[in-house]
Design a protein around this nucleic acid. Structure first.
Lengths: 220, 220
DNA sequence: TAAAAAATAAGTACAAATACTTAATTTTTT
DNA sequence: AAAAAATTAAGTATTTGTACTTATTTTTTA
């Protein structure tokens, strides 16, 4: 469980790298296995050293840290990544999350927070510093806010079968019975029956109600 | 700007309150103006002392901390609120956000983080500890994830009229042409025409595609 | 106050969905 | 191996929507 965490540092400033390195190496189960001074080098070093964790600065020559995250994720590289940033920036934070970063720290964070983040990310968790939490909360409370509602659970014995779920998905994507029949290689009449049963089970009387209910109970 | 921050503490454990109090009072521009040992008392003390900030524990007799937040927000009380929790709990975190809390800390947080949270919340910010960031990120990346996508904007000259928007809303709520006609006191044929025009404008060929496109472009 | 845009509504023919029921196969669970 | 559940599919009559076009009346905007 408490194996050595192999880390790569990517930051174009020697002092920053050195600072982080000395901080990390005060911990005995962390070892810095590589360093990079720009985005391209970061990708290279990660590919060759295969570390557990990459700590990457956003502002770097030849690809930003966020681009590095994107590229690694597109390659399905499972390395954990903590993004470092100078200031709170909504754009950077959201882009990092979207790109698939596991953590986000400000350069001003304390040694304790740094290590906490590092360990939780290395263990498969996420750590986005409280300093940027307002950005996350904004995202969550703006928009539909539906995300915050505890999703209602389907009551009692209501069971939607596998096949019905397939039909439901196709229905919600805009397919008609005929298209569904073709897609699943069944008769149009069968598709109709599945649709009918779905509507009966969910007690709805038309497609839109079906769609609404399906979304409400996150059936898809 | 750096005025004294007036704080109320609500926690049913004397030791916790006392610990926080001594921590806070080591800061010179923070003063604890009230304490409460349960939810009801918290509401009372906040109402009478009108503090800048309430630090409230979740688990308390007579209304949980979250219920206290809800009640204060329903009364439009502008007090800033930091919720304290023993452990990371998705349910508690999400409920706190929904109730309108400005911050969320674990009881194990460091003195530094505590004070950082307190100051940023007192200054109108939000502070949700990094320890629970995985919950926030989950919320943001699950669901439609649409929250992270820049919402596409309707192209060019495409204009949906007021009436069409009304029809659209009714359509998406599951109404048929006849029902829409009745609701808007127009002929069923008129409702049909509006629906037809909508579908033509949005280049869709059935209700579900209309629904999907409407959602995608947040037309409703 | 024109001109443009929006809302209203009818007609027609055709396509699709609704609302069931019945029933033969498969597949899954016990 | 039997029972239960799921999938398949057909029949029938009725309702609703599709895909237009044409045209009058209101409302908005220039």
């Amino acid at each position: 469980m408490n194996q050595t965490i192999r880390v790569v540092l990517a930051d174009d400033h020697f002092f920053v790298r050195d600072g982080i390195k000395s901080l990390l190496e005060s911990e005995k189960n962390i070892v810095v296995v590589g360093e990079a001074t720009d985005g391209l080098e970061a990708l290279e070093v990660v590919t060759t050293t295969n570390p557990d964790l990459l700590i990457v600065d956003i502002r770097m020559p030849h690809h930003t840290g966020i681009e590095v995250v994107e590229k690694l994720r597109n390659q399905n590289n499972p390395v954990k990544i903590i993004v470092l940033s100078m200031h709170e920036s909504e754009e950077y934070v959201l882009k990092s999350i979207k790109a698939g970063a596991d953590g986000y720290l400000l350069k001003g964070s304390s040694k304790e927070e740094f290590l906490k983040a590092l360990h939780s990310v290395a263990n498969g968790g996420k750590y986005f510093t409280g300093d940027i939490s307002s950005i996350l909360i904004n995202q969550l409370t703006s928009s539909t806010a539906s995300t915050l509602e505890p999703k209602p659970v389907l009551n009692e014995d209501l069971t939607i079968t596998k096949r019905e779920k397939e039909i439901l998905t196709l229905l919600l994507s805009g397919k008609g019975n005929k298209e569904i029949a073709e897609a699943l290689e069944i008769s149009k009449r069968t598709a109709e029956v599945h649709r009918f049963n779905l509507m009966k089970k969910l007690k709805v009387k038309n497609l839109m109600e079906l769609s609404n209910k399906a979304t409400e109970y996150s059936l898809i």
